[in-house]
Amino acid sequence: MEILMAFIIGILFMSATYLMLSKSLLRIIIGTGLLSHGAHLLLLTMGGLKRGAAPLLGEHAPSYTDPLPQALILTAIVISFGVTAFFLVLAYRTYQELGTDNMDRLRGNEGND
């Protein structure tokens, strides 16, 4: 399963990179979304998969999955959400003010850089 996950994560990273290299601002943000999914799955996979019950003591299981990566991922999800939300509103305001979402046109012009 870990090998399959490694390839899935690779595909997520690949798509994310390709989107981030595009010139539409919205696609770049979609790319960052995919990138954070990839990173979260990578964290989980590296902690080892399916090593026991869910990390709830009420289960009374002989072994539990590692709770630490899950806590780390939970933190990461919330932070990436905060950043993505900020970024989206930034993009929204950019459309409003500048009227474009094309990164080539957002480069600044001569005398203004």
Partner: peptide, 9 residues
């Protein structure tokens, strides 16, 4: 992968 809190969030 048995991470209920993560799934919820």
């Amino acid at each position: 992968f048995r991470a209920p809190d993560l799934a919820l969030t």
